[in-house]
Design a protein around this nucleic acid. Structure first.
Lengths: 138, 138
DNA sequence: GCGGATGGTTATTGACAATAACAATATCAT
DNA sequence: ATGATATTGTTATTGTCAATAACCATCCGC
């Protein structure tokens, strides 16, 4: 019955993304991170001048929604904030944050290897370019 | 700065799906439908024996969450329910529902053509098979 | 120095999925 | 045929996540 929807690119994209997010969420939960939180850790690595607004712009998260996200990372002791000037503040990783970032990196890298392994070789290398074209046109 | 995440399949999948859903939502809103609602209309077309539970199973929506969804479609006059036995009821399209389904079909088909058109020809045909492999393995 | 843009924040809203519980009914095994 | 089990539809509640509006303080360009 689902055959009507199965080959529809939009539907396939939605279902694939849902399945992927669910699995990745489960794996990241083992180190107490949500997907968006892990993205932030990966993003601010080796930087000491990235503001919350800038992270939001890159990850496409409203800066209002960055507040609770960074708040959680801060109470978990993974990030700290350093004033850049009277208005802006840099988000930077603590020692614990660096450690957690490395774990998150390992988990996501393994996960994405697993993902790609499920795709037939002849399709595999086309996925990221195709997705990139969809995302950055919008 | 985003380069660290850009080529990650999981991240690309998430962003592409978000962009796609946003755009499709906007287009379907012109005929007062949400994405999940449109999926239901497409699914129950030309059937008179599909139950709410079955729709949920196919679309991966908990049957508890089908209740408000079908409720909205019913008050909009797009579906009606016909008892199958004392326990189950078939979800079927009204005349207005058939009409709306056709509009939804046109919108989504056009939309997906637009999507595919953004993808370089050499990648295009690999997208759905690759996504299918990700989704149905989970 | 002033006006407009930007950063950080609060509060609120809505879409959507997940969970638990329940009553009624159907199905299956014996 | 009956009794245990599974399924259907439903209510209610929770949590995650994104979107919007408003606010104040501060920065920047002219």
């Amino acid at each position: 019955m689902t055959d009507i929807l199965r080959q529809r690119p939009g539907y396939a994209l939605r279902r694939a993304a849902n399945a992927m997010m669910g699995e990745l969420s489960r794996r990241l939960a083992t180190i107490d991170l949500r997907i968006a939180e892990a993205s932030v850790l990966l993003l601010v690595d080796r930087r000491d001048d990235v503001t919350a607004s800038e992270i939001g712009r890159v990850l496409d998260i409203q800066r209002a929604n960055m507040v609770p996200l960074l708040g959680r990372l801060e109470v978990a002791g993974l990030i700290e904030r350093k004033p850049i000037d009277g208005k802006s503040q840099a988000v930077l990783l603590t020692a614990l944050g660096h450690q957690r970032r490395a774990e998150a990196d390992a988990i996501t890298t393994t996960f994405e290897d697993d993902l790609l392994a499920r795709i037939a070789p002849e399709h595999r290398d086309h996925l990221v370019p195709a997705l990139g074209a969809l995302w950055r046109a919008d």
